[in-house]
Amino acid sequence: MNRHLAATAAIAAWSATILAAPADAATADRESFGALPDGTAIESVTLIGANGVRARIMTLGATLQALEAPDRDGRVADVTLGHDDAASYVSHPNYWGQTIGRYANRIAGGRFTLDGKAYQLTLNEKAASLHGGTAGFDKRVWRIVSLHGGTAARVVLALTSPAGDQGYPGKVEARVTYTLDDAGVLTIDFNATSDAPTIVNMTNHALFNLAGEGSATGAMGHRLTIPAARYTPVNDALIPTGEVKPVAGGAFDFTRPRMIGEAIRNGSDPQIVLGRGYDHNYVLDKGQTTEPQLAARLEDPASGRVLEVLSTQPGVQFYAGNFLDGTLRGKRGHVYRMGDGIALEPQTFPDTPNQPAFGSARVAPGQPYHHSMIYRVSVTR
């Protein structure tokens, strides 16, 4: 059986077991997920809730490899872009569901100064260090610390990032905890401690298509709401300029539900031209919060699936899959094209270490990092 047929059979078997899951208990199932080209073994943990929502977590990149959810008629589909096997995440690298760190998004020139000392990070874009550099957290194999089921299914993964990793100071101990309950709420908690002052900004980079990954319609017909009256414009390297601009009435206004494709080709907006669409950080009205609050709401009118993203962070990066160019094949052999999936990444603002007006990304001994975010799946009738 070839790889794509095997993947299809596995998904079918995975979906079929939903009815067998206990109605009053979530479960966590651990299994092999293949190996990397160098022979490193990769595992996955499938979290199963009673209402038909399932999340598969892969140890490579602490990745949300799949999120399955029923539509209004009970039909289950995987709503995240990705690959069917671990090796493809290495041979065709991208940011499809991985945990991002040490620093999500872009740092200009890969340079920043902390406590009067300058640091140079690895560059994986011409003018920036993106998503942690050439070998960020997304490319590491994480350790499974614990997993259990019950009222909620949970897996905890850990990673040690040594001092000097990608140019960052301090030894960082990072943990990611995925928890799925029976209501279809997937909570992701990011925690990090450091033995020296450093910067940390962690998030998840899932790309969503609520019609089902690989669907012919893509995600441009989804309706999006972002409770943010302002966003941070970027330069031609997609680095924030430092300006904070109102969204009111323009292409970036998602304060009320709006179809994503409505203004994504609006060439009269220079920010749409620079980003090839949407690839911008929104300044959430709620700011930094102790408990997760709404950062975005995504709805697919055709299937009825709804995704709410909640977070404790002050920003959310909205990326509309602008750089998906049809050269990569994902799950079940699907060719991913521009707009086939979107990312909603809660975060500290991009380039914050170089822009004090944005706040602080500092972590130090006795001052740990914590970010709690939620993917809440439901349906409308």
Results as ranks from 00 to 15, higher is better:
Ser161Asp: 15
Ala158Val: 13
Gly167Thr: 08
Thr187Ser: 13
Thr177Asp: 12
Arg143Tyr: 01
Gly170Thr: 14
Thr179Pro: 01
Thr203Lys: 06
Leu180His: 02
Leu207Gln: 09
Ile199Lys: 12
Gly164Tyr: 11
Thr179Asn: 06
Phe208Ala: 09
Leu147Ser: 15
Leu180Phe: 06
Gln166Pro: 04
Asn191Ile: 01
Val176Cys: 08
Met202Thr: 04
Ala196His: 03
Val176His: 04
Pro162Trp: 10
Gly164Ile: 04
Thr198Leu: 08
Ile144Val: 15
Gly170Pro: 15
Ile199Arg: 10
Ala152Cys: 10
Leu159His: 09
Thr193Val: 15
Asp182Tyr: 03
Gly170Gln: 12
Ser146Pro: 07
Ala163Cys: 06
Trp142Gln: 00
Asn191Lys: 05
Val156Asn: 08
Asn191Gly: 10
Asp181Lys: 00
Ile188Tyr: 04
Lys171Glu: 14
Arg154Pro: 09
His205Gln: 13
Arg175Ile: 00
Met202Gly: 04
Gln166Cys: 05
Gly136Tyr: 06
Lys171Pro: 03
Leu186Asp: 12
Ala135Thr: 11
Val200Asn: 12
Thr177Trp: 11
Glu173Arg: 09
Pro197His: 15
Arg154Leu: 08
Asn204Cys: 04
Thr179Asp: 03
Asp181His: 01
Leu147Ile: 07
Asp182Phe: 00
Ala206Lys: 01
Val155Glu: 00
Tyr168Trp: 08
Thr193Asp: 13
His205Met: 14
Ile188Arg: 01
Glu173Phe: 04
Val141Gly: 01
Pro169His: 11
Phe137Gln: 06
Pro162His: 07
His205Arg: 11
Ala196Phe: 08
Gly150Pro: 09
Ala163Ile: 07
Val185Pro: 00
Pro169Arg: 10
Gly184Asn: 13
Ala196Ile: 05
Val176Ile: 14
Lys139Asp: 05
Asp195Ala: 10
Asn201Arg: 12
Leu159Ser: 10
Ala174Thr: 06
Ala183Ile: 08
Ala163Leu: 00
Ser194Leu: 07
Ser146Met: 11
Asn201Tyr: 01
Gly149His: 08
Val145Tyr: 04
Phe208Gln: 07
Gly184Ser: 14
Thr203Leu: 03
Leu186Val: 10
Phe190Tyr: 14
Pro162Arg: 11
Ala174His: 07
Leu186Glu: 03
Asn191Val: 09
Gly167Trp: 08
Thr179Gln: 09
Ile199Thr: 15
Ala174Trp: 05
